[in-house]
Design a protein around this nucleic acid. Structure first.
Lengths: 247, 247
DNA sequence: GGGGAGAGATGCCGC
DNA sequence: GCGGCATTTCTCCCC
C-alpha cells in the first residue's frame, strides 16, 4: 500500500514533533553547504533523523554517512511539485542540507529510549594506567610521578624518573606510532625542559610498533622506543565492571 | 501486527541473502571485541546492515554510531530463548559484535541502488590550489614552484620562493590551526633544509585563524601566520561542475 | 565555549 | 599493504 508523498510529509513532521526517531529509505539527491559544500546526484539512501534532531544520510555501502548534520538542527518537510523537499538548517553553525526526495521505499518512526553509556576497554588511557601501575614494564628503576600532567603544550601520559633520577616522559600510543607521535613527545619534552629548568629529559614512546620514519626521527632526537601493547582487553574490562558493580 | 522474533530471524537472513539493506529499530544490548572491547547495556537503537555487509548501531541521539563493523563482515541471526541473537564476525580483522535483541519496534529491508559519488568543495586541497593560482595572497613577490615538485619532498601544501629568493613552505589548514599544524610545518622545514642543504627556509601557516598557543609556538620557531580562508565554496563548486560537465 | 588529544577513528592517495 | 594526512572528522575532558 503506497502513500502519496504529501502524506509522508505529514507523517514525518508529526513524528519529529513527537520527538520520535525517523527512518526513511528513499531515492534522493542532496546538496550541502556549511563548513564545506557538497553535491550528490540521484540514488537510493537511508535517512535517519534522530530524536535530538541530528540527521544522517547513508548510501547502501560504506561505513560513514555521506551527509549529516549535528544535533539541534531544524528540519522541515514540504511537497514541491512531484517530490518531497527535506530542508535541514543549523543557523548556529551556518549549515544547510537540502534533500530532494523523489520516491520513498519505506518509512518508520518510533519513540526510542536509551539511557545507556558505552564502556570501552583497551584504550590509550588503559595503557598509561597499566604503565603507571607496573612501571617496570618501561624499565627497571623507573618511578612514575604523575599521570596526565598538564602543560601549555599538551598532556603528558606518564611522567617520572629513571633509576639515575633523570626526568622521563612516556608517550603512549595504542597502535602503530607515527611521525606525529614523535613530534608530540618532542613538544612535551621541550616544554618541560623550559618549565622545569633542566637540560636533559628522556623521552620514551611506548606503542605496539612504530613506523620506520618515525623510528628514525625518534633516534635523531635521542629518544627511545619501547614496544608495549595495550592491556589485555578482557582483564581491563572486567576490572571496570567490578568497579561499576561495586556501586 | 506483531511478528514473533523467530519470523524476524528468517526475514533478516533472507534479506541479507538478497543483498538488501536492512533497518531495524529494537531494544538490545551489545558486546564488541576487536581492536578494543566494549559493552553497552539494554536500550533502544537503530541497526543498519548495508548491502556491503557493513553494520552500524545508532543510539537515538548523537552523530556517531555507538558500535559498528566494517564492510565484508558476516552476520548471522538466530533465536536464543526469548530473544534474537545477531552475531557479526569479521575474521580477517579479528572483530566480533554480538547484539542481543529483546524486542523489535520496526523492521524494513530494501534493495537500494546508488552509483553516485559525492563532490565536495572547500577542502584544504581547494585552498592550496587557490594559493598556487593567486600567490599574491601569501605576499607580494611570492612565487610558487611547479606543483610536480611537491611530491619530491612529501606532502607539502604549497612551496616556493619569496621576493628575496628564500625558499618558503606554506602549510594550509581549512579551519583553526593548532599545535600539531605548527609541528607539521616544522617537520617539513627541517626535512627540506636537509634535502636542499640550506640553512634558512621560511615557514608560513595559512589558515582562517590560529590558537593562542599555536601562535606562540609559531613565533618561537620564527615562522609566520597568514590569515587566509578556504575559497568561496560555491565558486569552487561551480568550477568543478563546469569541469565535469565538459567531459 | 575554546583548546588539546584520542578514536575500535575513517577514507584517500601514493609508493 | 603500509604510510602519511585530511576529515563537514567526532567525542571527551578540562580550563
Amino acid at each position: 500500500m503506497r502513500m502519496h508523498l504529501s502524506e509522508y510529509a505529514t507523517l514525518i513532521t508529526d513524528a519529529m514533533l513527537r520527538n520520535e526517531t525517523v527512518v526513511l529509505g528513499c531515492t534522493c539527491s542532496i546538496r550541502y553547504s556549511g563548513r564545506a559544500e557538497s553535491q550528490l546526484g540521484r540514488g537510493d539512501r537511508i535517512i535517519l533523523i534522530k530524536s535530538d534532531k541530528a540527521i544522517l544520510v547513508h548510501q547502501p555501502t560504506g561505513n560513514a554517512p555521506i551527509n549529516y548534520m549535528k544535533p539541534e538542527t531544524s528540519h522541515s518537510v514540504v511537497v514541491e511539485g512531484n517530490h518531497l523537499l527535506l530542508k535541514s538548517k543549523n543557523l548556529a553553525l551556518k549549515e544547510f542540507l537540502d534533500v530532494t526526495i523523489e520516491r520513498i521505499h519505506f518509512y518508520n518512526s518510533h519513540k526510542l529510549e536509551d539511557s545507556q553509556t558505552i564502556i570501552v576497554a583497551g584504550t590509550e588511557e588503559d595503557m598509561s594506567n597499566m604503565l603507571y601501575e607496573h612501571p617496570d614494564m618501561i624499565e627497571d628503576g623507573f618511578k612514575p610521578v604523575s599521570r596526565e600532567e598538564q602543560t601549555a603544550y599538551g598532556f603528558i601520559d606518564v611522567f617520572g624518573t629513571d633509576k639515575h633520577g633523570t626526568l622521563t616522559i612516556v608517550e603512549c600510543k595504542r597502535y602503530c606510532a607515527d611521525l606525529s607521535a614523535v613530534t608530540q613527545l618532542r613538544r612535551y619534552i621541550e616544554k618541560m625542559m623550559v618549565s622545569k629548568g633542566v637540560s636533559k629529559i628522556r623521552g620514551i614512546l611506548a606503542a605496539p610498533k612504530i613506523t620506520e620514519n618515525a623510528e628514525q626521527m625518534l633516534k635523531d632526537w635521542g629518544y627511545e622506543f619501547k614496544s608495549i601493547r595495550p592491556p589485555k582487553y578482557l582483564e581491563a574490562f572486567d576490572k571496570k565492571q567490578a568497579k561499576l558493580d561495586f556501586f
